[in-house]
Amino acid sequence: MNLKSNLRIGVLGLQGAVKEHLDMLEGCGCNAVDVRKVGDLQGLDGLIIPGGESTTIGKLMERYGFDVEIKRRVGEGMAVFGTCAGLILLAKDIVGSSQARLGFMDIHVRRNAFGRQVESFEADLDIPAIGAEPFRAVFIRAPYIESVEPGVEVLARFDGKIVMAREGRFLVSAFHPELTRDKRIHEYFIEKVVSG
């Protein structure tokens, strides 16, 4: 069994809510790495792709070769967790968009699916995989997963829409656990997806 303090988990630091994830990882007792250069991906056990603008992060990933290196590291067993924009970047299919992506998960995603900013919301979610206590989830111009292919495990829904899912070493959430103080989703990633 891996000790958390030996785990190195990176947060892709090109744009978005990077610091919030780094703080959360440190709070979980991990070695948190701000990934700003391709070389920073070396030696990581897991990587978080944060919330931000998926078009911006996607373009910067391609321009600086992060996409190629992340795919190579995933081939070596690196786990990846995407929140909001990160969820979009992990999807194989983004409805109506040809934007840059990593495409690791067999999911069909719709961007800004709940509407514009005035429709952004907080809600209590039931996520049995992390325990019985509801999780206060923050959705900001959030996407949702329209459908999943076989092999993808649905972990949470809101209003019938899929908002959290896992496929092997990939985890995604449409909401922002890094904007709360509840560490359970980061712990799930560390204990079940990275170390699992």
């Binding site: 809510a17 919330g51 931000g52 909001c84 924009a85 952004s120 907080e122 923050v138 900001i140």
Partner: peptide, 21 residues
Amino acid sequence: MVEKGTWTVKKGLAEMLKGGV
């Protein structure tokens, strides 16, 4: 309970813009 336009949600969008133009 579902809440829109909360401080977390308002401030949160700005957090998502960080490092950007």
